[in-house]
C-alpha cells in the first residue's frame, strides 16, 4: 500500500463547505429590507451555528458570480431553515439588488457553512448590544441563543424611522424589558455616556451598524475606561465598485481583467483559482495574497493588513481591495 504521506501535506485551502439550498420564502419587511429564507435541497438538516455567524451567499448574476456574506438571523438551534435579512443598496455593486430584484421563491442558490467572526464572549456576566439599522441581524440570532439559556442581555437599537425599523415589533413584543428603540426621525439617540456608566463588571459590549456608529461606540467605551477585550464589533465591508484593472496570476499563469462591479477575489475565482476565505469582507485575513510585481496605486480597504504592509505594496486582500495602474502580478 503506497499512499501520500498523511502528515506531510501543507495546509490546503479551507474554504467553507457549500450547501445547496432553495429559496423557501421572501418576506419584505419594509422599503429597504427583505428577509430571505432557505431550505436544503438534499433534505438534510442545516448545521446548527452560533449567534453572530454569517453565511456566504453565492449569486449567479448573468456572467458574474458574486459571493456576499450575510449574518444568519434565524434561531441557531433551528435546523430546518436558515434566514438572512438583506438591505437594498442602490449604490453598491449589485449583490443586494440582485437578491431583491431577481431572486424568487423556488430559486436554487448556494450557501457556505456558517462562520462566526462576531461570536458572543460566553464568559460575560451581561451582554450589552448596540445596533444600528441592518446591524440588528447578528443580534437577532444571538438573542435567540442567549434566551435558550436564560442569558443576561440588553439591546439598544437605533433605526432611521418606525417604517424602517426591521424586527422592532417582534423584539418589543417578546422582550419589552430588554429592548430599547431609538428613531432618528424623532430625534431620539442612544445616550451612550450614561449607558456605558454603571454597567456591572464583566459586561461585554457588542456593536454592529454603520461605520460611524461603530467608531463612536468604540471610542466612547475606550474613553470611559472599558477594556478593549470587553468591546466587540462586526464590520464587514462590502466590496466597492471601481475602475476595471488587469491582474496576472504568476503561479497559475493566467491573466484577467477585474470588472467595475466585480471584486479582485471574484475575478480570480472566475479563472478557477480559489484562494481560501472566510468573510470576504476584509476582516478574517484568509485571502491575504502576496504581490510579486506592481506599477500603480493600491486601493487598500481591508481591516486586516497593518499600515506598513499596506504601504509596502507587497500584500493585498483581494476580497475588498483594488488596484489602479498598469501592472499587477499576484502570487496565486
Amino acid at each position: 500500500m503506497t499512499a501520500p504521506a498523511p502528515n506531510s501535506t501543507a495546509p490546503k485551502s479551507i474554504g467553507a463547505e457549500k450547501i445547496k439550498v432553495i429559496v423557501s420564502a421572501i418576506v419584505p419587511l419594509n422599503n429597504l429590507v427583505t428577509r430571505f429564507e432557505f431550505k436544503r435541497i438534499d433534505g438534510y438538516q442545516f448545521p446548527t451555528f452560533s449567534g453572530g455567524a454569517h453565511t456566504v451567499v453565492e449569486m449567479q448574476d448573468g456572467d458574474l458570480k458574486r459571493s456576499n456574506p450575510y449574518s444568519l438571523m434565524s434561531d441557531p438551534a433551528e435546523t430546518e431553515t436558515y434566514a438572512i435579512s438583506v438591505r437594498r443598496d442602490d449604490q453598491g455593486r449589485g449583490g443586494s439588488l440582485f437578491l431583491h430584484q431577481k431572486v424568487q421563491v423556488g430559486a436554487t442558490m448556494t450557501l457556505s457553512s456558517p462562520v462566526n467572526l462576531f461570536s458572543l464572549d460566553l464568559r460575560a456576566r451581561k451582554h450589552l448590544f448596540v445596533a444600528g439599522g441592518i446591524g440588528i441581524t447578528p443580534f437577532m440570532a444571538q438573542i435567540k441563543q442567549l434566551d435558550a439559556v436564560h442569558g443576561n442581555w440588553e439591546l439598544h437599537y437605533s433605526c432611521r424611522s418606525p417604517e424602517l425599523g426591521s424586527y422592532v415589533d417582534e423584539l418589543c413584543a417578546k422582550h419589552a424589558h430588554s429592548v430599547n428603540i431609538y428613531y432618528d426621525d424623532k430625534k431620539q439617540s442612544i445616550d451612550l455616556e450614561n449607558l456605558l456608566d454603571g454597567q456591572p463588571i464583566g459586561t461585554h459590549l457588542y456593536v454592529c451598524g454603520p461605520k460611524g456608529m461603530i467608531d463612536w461606540v468604540r471610542r466612547s467605551a475606550a474613553s470611559a475606561g472599558w477594556p478593549d477585550a470587553h468591546v466587540h464589533h462586526e464590520e464587514f465591508l462590502a466590496p466597492q465598485p471601481g475602475k476595471p484593472f488587469a491582474v496576472r496570476l504568476a503561479k497559475s499563469g493566467l491573466s484577467v481583467e477585474v470588472g467595475e462591479h466585480e471584486s479582485l477575489l471574484e475575478a480570480i475565482e472566475r479563472l478557477g483559482v480559489e484562494p481560501p476565505y472566510l468573510c470576504r469582507g476584509g476582516a478574517c485575513g484568509q485571502c491575504e495574497t502576496d504581490v510579486l510585481e506592481s506599477e500603480g496605486i493600491f486601493i487598500h480597504r481591508d481591516h486586516w493588513l497593518e499600515d506598513d504592509e499596506k504601504s509596502s505594496g507587497i500584500k493585498i486582500m483581494p476580497c475588498v481591495s483594488r488596484f489602479d495602474g498598469k501592472i499587477l502580478v499576484l502570487d496565486r
Partner: peptide, 9 residues
Amino acid sequence: SIQQGAPAR
C-alpha cells in the same frame, strides 16, 4: 480558520 464540517489533523 477551521470551519464547521471541515476538521483537520
